[in-house]
Design a protein around this nucleic acid. Structure first.
Ligand SMILES: [Mn+2]
Ligand SMILES: [Mn+2]
Ligand SMILES: [Zn+2]
Ligand SMILES: [Zn+2]
Lengths: 153, 153
DNA sequence: TCAACAGTTTAGAATCGTTCTAAAGAAACC
DNA sequence: GGTTTCTTTAGAACGATTCTAAACTGTTGA
């Protein structure tokens, strides 16, 4: 929890050159409260409505993209049909719980031995997604499965 | 190029317990011709029509999912709004050309220092996606950009 | 061989996340 | 306050994918 969430959100918007509207302030206060969050547009929209902030889904999308452009968020691709936005913009990777759709930050993963990118291309970003099956107490797989890979050493 | 593509496709379908219909044979012959391929449903559909195989898009989707369930394909998630299917089912990772949507296999990437998965979960798969910006001869970035990360180590 | 059944294909509708449009509303500026 | 510029919004549109239900085809075994 931050001490002056309103002031902090205001600062972020001003630095991004975005007018501090009711909707943006509400979304920013929730998103940038000091926790690392991974939200979809729908989730953020639902959360705003819970807090009795009236905001349309279109505005939630607009705002998420503006925040992303401003470097306040980054988009994480883990699911072919849903976009996640991550408030942690530092270099890190993810566990993805396929059953629940939950993302979890992981740090210190080492990616080595990357081949040279083809001529005319350069690396914009490296994303590691560790997909997780949930198991029940018996150790049986609960979700749809497939042979489990292990990470290359 | 395979010597008896018809026979090979037939074998694959039979081992998967799928009836060798005209549509499945045509799709299988193209997909499993010995090359590693990364296709979207639309691309595969377009290709079939080029080859004058009449097949509906619904059947292409059905077939891709059946082949995936049978372990002949695997789905690769790199783009929030498009599903890629990969004929290379061995352990490997990808370059993703954000501009063109093209995927390219990379081998021998080392992923180390993965944290233990949370209790009740186990690793189903580890995916490394190296996103590439295309640059022109001057070295300037051609696509929309963002600060370029380098891989850890 | 052929009927009967089970599995397959398909057109078109439906769904779903996301983006667009254009008009109304709010912030900024003078 | 008046004017400009940016923002929000409802609702339509979009594009990828899935569903539906009816027609079709491969398989089986009498
Ligand atoms: Mn987007
Ligand atoms: Mn799918
Ligand atoms: Zn994260
Ligand atoms: Zn591949």
């Amino acid at each position: 929890m931050r001490e002056r969430p309103y002031k902090h959100a205001l600062d972020l918007l001003q630095r991004a050159g975005l007018r501090p509207t009711k909707q943006r302030l509400a979304l920013a206060r929730f998103l940038f409260d000091g926790h690392d969050r991974h939200v979809t547009a729908e989730q953020l929209h639902a959360r705003a409505l819970e807090d009795r902030v009236s905001v349309s889904l279109a505005t939630v999308y607009n705002t998420l993209h503006q925040f992303t452009r401003a470097g306040l968020l980054r988009e994480v691709v883990v699911d072919a049909n849903r976009s996640y936005f991550d408030t942690n913009t530092s270099e890190h990777h993810h566990f993805f719980h396929e059953k629940t759709g939950e993302l979890q930050d992981i740090r210190d993963v080492v990616v080595a031995n990357l081949p040279q990118p083809p001529a005319g291309a350069r690396i914009a970003r490296v994303d590691v997604v560790v997909r997780l099956d949930d198991t029940d107490e018996s150790g049986d797989v609960v979700t749809h499965s497939g042979p489990a890979d292990r990470a290359d050493i």
